[in-house]
Design a protein around this nucleic acid. Sequence first.
DNA 1: ACTATTACGATATGGATGTACCATCAAGGT
DNA 2: ACCTTGATGGTACATCCATATCGTAATAGT
Lengths: 207, 207
Amino acid sequence: MPRLVDHQVRRRQITSAVRRVIVEGGLEAVTFQSVAAEAGISVRLIQYYFGTKREFLLATHRSVMEDAGARFMKRWAALGDDATPREAISALLNELLPLDDPRREEAIVLGVFNMAAITGQGITSEETLAAPRALVSILADQLRRAQYPEASADPDLDAELVTVAVGGLAQGMLAGFATAQSAVDLVDHLLDRVLGTNDDHRKPPLR
Amino acid sequence: MPRLVDHQVRRRQITSAVRRVIVEGGLEAVTFQSVAAEAGISVRLIQYYFGTKREFLLATHRSVMEDAGARFMKRWAALGDDATPREAISALLNELLPLDDPRREEAIVLGVFNMAAITGQGITSEETLAAPRALVSILADQLRRAQYPEASADPDLDAELVTVAVGGLAQGMLAGFATAQSAVDLVDHLLDRVLGTNDDHRKPPLR
DNA sequence: ACTATTACGATATGGATGTACCATCAAGGT
DNA sequence: ACCTTGATGGTACATCCATATCGTAATAGT
C-alpha cells in the first residue's frame, strides 16, 4: 500500500477551512476554490475526501455540532455534585455563549446553517432542533431540583424561556448588540428573574 | 415624454420578489435571473431600476426594515393612553413575533441579512443595531412606568433581557422550535417573570 | 525490484452569473 | 405627423463555479 494518510485529520483540516471561509464571507463565499485556498491544498483534494460541495458543507455542520456538544458535555461533567442548580445552569449557559473566538466561530457557523435550513435549502433542519430541546430538558430538571420560589413555578416554561433568551443573547453578541461582559451580566440577571433573587443561592460576588 | 411608470411601484415589485426568493432559497438563490423570473419581468429591468446586485439587495433590506418599523409604529400608536404598561409591552412584543406570513417573511429576510452582516459581507451592520436599541429604550420606559415589583428593579437590564428573549423566540419560531401559540404563551410568561405575576396588571384571560 | 493501490496535481467542461451594450417600443408635446 | 425621451427586451461577454477526467508520484507488500 502507498503512503497512508489519516483521513480524519484531512477532513478536519478541510472542515476547519470551511468554517473560516463561512465566518469571513458566509455561505456564498464557500466554493471549492476558496476552501482549497484557505486550507492550503488543491481543489482536487476536497473532491477526493468529500465528493460534492453539499457533502463537505454537511460535514462541517456536523463537526461544529460535535465540537459544541463535546464542550458542553465536558462542562456538564466538570460540575461537582455539590453544585447548586443555579451554579449548574449558570455554568452551562455561559458555556453556550460565544465568549471567545472558537465559540464565536462556531456560533456564526451554526447561525449561518440555521438560516440556510430555514430558507428551504437542502441543509438539515430536524437535527438542529434536538440540541435546544435537550437543553430545555436539562434546564427544566435543574429548575425542578432548585425548587425555586413560590408555588407558581412552571419549570418547563421557564426552561424554554431561558433557552430562547440565551439563544437571542448569543445572536445579539454576534451582531455586536451585547458585549461579553454585558452578556454574562444579562445571564445572571435572567437567572435572578427566573429563580428569584435569593442571595443564598448565589456565591458571593467575585469583585 | 413617453409612457411614464411609477418607479416606486416597480422598485417595490422587484424588492418583493427578492424577499420571496430569499425566503425560498436564501441569499445564494438571489440572482438577477431568479429575481426577474419571480417578479415576472426581464433581467434588464432590474438593471434599469437598480444598477447592481448589491444595490437591490440593500434596497430590499431597507424596505423590510421600513415595513416592520411602520407596523410597529402603527401598533404603538394604536395603544390608548389607558393601556397598562404590561398591555403596551405585550402588544409591542407580539407585534414583533413572526405570527403570520408577512411577518414571517420579514423575519426570515432580516435574519438572512443579519447573518450576512455578521459574516463580513458588504451588507449593513450598524443600522441593524438601531432597532433593538430603540426597542430596549421603549421597553425600559414602560417598565419604569409600571413601577414593577420591589426595589430591586433594573429597568434597563430587564428591557435588554426582554429584547434578547423575544429575538431568540422569533428565531426559534422560524426554526420550528416554537409554535405561534407557545410563543405567545412564552411572551406572557416572560412578562410574568419580569413584571411579577400580579394579576391586577393583567386582563382576564380571553378564553 | 516490481507492482498494485492510495493520494494527489492539473486541467477540461458545461453551465450559471453579473454586468455592459445595442436595439426597439411607446407616448406626449410640438 | 413627428421627434424626443423614458422604459424595456435581447444578447454578448468575461468570469466563476461544480464536477469529471486523465495523469502521476509515492510506498507497502510481494
